[in-house]
Structure formats: C-alpha cells, structure tokens
Design a protein around this nucleic acid. Structure first.
Ligand SMILES: [Mn+2]
Ligand SMILES: [Mn+2]
Ligand SMILES: [Mn+2]
Ligand SMILES: [Mn+2]
Lengths: 221, 221
DNA sequence: GCCCTATTTTAGTCTAACCTAAAAATTTGT
DNA sequence: ACAAATTTTTAGGTTAGACTAAAATAGGGC
C-alpha cells in the first residue's frame, strides 16, 4: 500500500504536532494551521489516513498516529534531514537555503537510496540545524540540549541546534557569527528584558534578545 | 508559470519521440504507447500543454514542442542524467539500478541545486549509459558514436554508450564484462546471423548476437 | 441544564489527470 | 473514388485533494 506525497506531509505534520503537545491527540485545527489548508480539507484527509490505518481518528476527538503512521512519518523526517546534510556538506548550500529543497527530496521513494546516502554522508547524527537524524530502524538519539535563554551563566556552552528554522533567523545567526559547534559563554543577564550578552569562542562579544536566545539550543561542554 | 510533474513527463516523451522520428510531428498514439496512457488521456493533456504554449498542437496533425517546451524537456533530461551520474559515481549504484530513481529526482525543482550538483560531479559530459548531458544553456555535445554492429572490423573501438537502457540488457553487458570505456576489436563477422566476436581490452574474446551488438555504441579510437 | 462560541464535520464544487465508449476525421487499399 | 480500417477526438465518468458555505457537535459559563 503506497502513501502519497500529500499523505506523507500530513503524517509529518501530525508527528511534529504531537511531539509539540506531549503526545496528546492532535486536533483538526492544529493540522489545518500547520499545513495552511482549510479544516474541511483536513477532515477529508483524516478519513483517508484512517482508512489506510495510518492514524486513529475519532470524529471531534483528534487523531494519533498508529505505529505504521509513525514509522512512515519518521522515515520522511530521516530522508529530509539526510538530504539537508547532503546539500550543506557536499553541495555547499548555506543552512538557511536547504529546507525547501529537502521538502521535495524527502518524498523520493527508494530504501536503497536512503541507506546509500546515509553511508555516503558518514551516518550523520544531526542535520545542519542540529536536529537529530533517526536511524534506519526509526530511533532518534537523545537530545540533551537546552535553550540558551535557560542556560546558566559562566559555564562553557556548545551551540548544538536551533528551534526556529526560518530563513530570517538562520541568516540572523550567520550574520551574527554564530554557527553550530561554536562555544558560548553567557557574560551578562539583564533582568529587565531578559536579554543577554555572550562571548563567542572566547573572542567576540554579542548582544542577544531573549527571543533570539530562546531559539538557540546549547549543551554544557 | 509552473509545469507539473505529469506535464514534464509528457514533454520529455514528446522530445524523445521527435528525436526518434527526425523532428517530425509526434502523434497522439506514439505518446500514448510511450507513456502507457490511453489516447483519449493524451488528447486531454495535449490541450493543456498547448494552452500553456509548451507545444504546437493541431488536432489530428500531431504535436511539436515550442522553444519553451523544448527548454523544459531538456532541463528535465539534464537533471535526470546528472542524478544518474550522482547515483553511480557517488553512491555506488550499478548502472542498471539508477533509472527509476532518476525518474523521480528529475522533477525536483531548484535551479541552484542543478548547478551545484553539476559542479559537485565535475560537470560530466555523459551519464552512466553514455547519454550526453546538455549544459546549463540546453546544448548537447555532439555524439559521434555508431552501433557496434555497424563498426568496421579490426579497428580499435571504445564503448561509449548503449541504446537499450533496460535492466536486462545492462546486466547482460555487466555479466559479459563490458562497460563504458572498454576497448573492443571486432575479430569475426558471421554473415549468416550477423553475430560477431569481439576482443575486449585486447584480452578476453566474446561472442555477441546482432541484437546485442546493435545496442552497443562505440567510437573509433 | 441550557446557551453561546469555537471547533469540526458534511454537503456540494472545482481541477488535474486518468479512464471507457462512441463519434468524427484521416489514411489506406483497391 | 470510396469503403474499410485506423487514428484521434469528444462525451461522460472517476478519484485525489483542494475549496466554501452550512450544519452539527462539544465545551465553558451561568
Ligand atoms: Mn528542514
Ligand atoms: Mn533541518
Ligand atoms: Mn535513465
Ligand atoms: Mn541514462
């Protein structure tokens, strides 16, 4: 039984939303907003996905992915992130340019291709935005990173990812000279607006708003 | 104006067929057989392609690609062949495994991606089957190869391509120890069934039927 | 318990891309 | 030249996936 391009996008959306809301049922409206489709169209699709046993759907009660649906969604995410690594590492794209292309590439259907691509890239554990890449069996490595805005002062931090994937934010980081792997130290914490000052790689100092800091993920070194 | 996945496949088919029949108008039935769609469906699509100015269509008289249609078709072919090179050269696929995956990859829409892929692969001039790769402006290099069955005896020949792209034929060649770049010499020519015997790289001798020899393309060294 | 509002589903349309069956146009054979 | 065979188009349907408008349901406040 084959899953269409469109169905894959719905499964991915449901997976992301159920993560976001700690594995609760996902509502029609949440999916509708996420995919920018009308709620009536979503209901339509939910019926089709339920027929295919990819989701559990109780009218008015929201949906949950079945194991089969989860497996499909995770595979699409795996493909998306592997292709992003390829685009950045091999083709020299910038990290803010790859998402839209990966949105297309993630639907290419060939198990052999995924595994050969994974080998070619050296079985990467994370994509260019620090998001973990599930392995062939669908398991994600554990991510123990926290938002920079929640990190403690003075300890050495490593930038491991971002939680805002927009071109604007990624370009802002690049322009500010922050990239994955950089070492950060929080130098000042302003109670008034929760803005901070950080030192990058023990060199330059940089001022960051709370909004920016909340979207940078770090691990304690 | 965007060209759909399906429309791209029609343009590619029309391009291939008009090559095959020396730039004559392509008929509805030819397209129908090539794409394994019914003739009525083809007529439907021809109207849509004509509306988009991608083909010139006169009912009952066959179709020709416009410049715009030709440009689109050639770009799809360029992408198909570049991806095939990627799959064989970088991911170690065999030459008989790549066509179906390239059929999907050829529809990925990003000019920047094509050009970066082309650079990454070293701007290859031919795909793994010896088919020429048009450059970014759409120009094909000239192919001066002939069928092995038409080549003259005793001269040193180089295998440059195949004209049958089926898995069966490609695997037959691999099993026989013939690949692109090999040197061949015709040792014997049997008038009875037009079969030949060739020497590969001045070492092994191999018997080939006329059918096989007619699908191997060679250049005189 | 009932009303109000927000959410969700149903009903009815639309388009792209396919199909079958029938009609029309073209080509072929004599 | 004209009938027969072939090719192509038209007419009418289907399905996936979108939409709008209207109806149904659920949940919160009193
Ligand atoms: Mn992405
Ligand atoms: Mn990413
Ligand atoms: Mn191919
Ligand atoms: Mn090829």
């Amino acid at each position: 039984m084959l899953v269409s391009y469109t169905e894959e996008n719905y499964l991915k959306a449901i997976f992301a939303l159920s993560r976001l809301y700690n594995d609760q049922e996902v509502s029609t409206n949440q999916i509708s907003e996420h995919l920018k489709n009308k709620a009536a169209s979503v209901t339509d699709m939910l019926k089709r996905l339920a027929d295919k046993k990819l989701i559990d759907y109780k009218p008015y009660k929201g949906v949950k992915l079945t194991d089969k649906g989860k497996k499909t969604a995770v595979k699409v995410i795996r493909k998306h992130r592997l292709w992003e690594v390829f685009l950045v590492e091999k083709l020299n794209f910038k990290w803010d340019e790859v998402h839209d292309i990966a949105e297309q590439l993630e639907h290419i259907d060939s198990d052999k291709l995924i595994e050969k691509l994974d080998d070619f890239l050296g079985k990467p554990k994370a994509d260019p935005h620090g998001d973990p890449i599930p392995d062939a069996s669908g398991k994600f490595g554990v991510q123990k990173s926290v938002a920079l805005s929640d990190a403690s002062k003075r300890s050495a931090l490593i930038v491991t990812g971002v939680s805002d994937h927009s071109t604007e934010f990624l370009q802002f980081l690049s322009n500010s000279g922050i990239s994955l792997g950089n070492q950060l130290k929080i130098e000042e914490y302003n109670d008034y607006d929760r803005s901070i000052t950080v030192k990058i790689n023990n060199k330059r100092s940089l001022f960051l708003s709370h909004k920016a800091a909340s979207n940078i993920l770090v691990e304690i070194k």
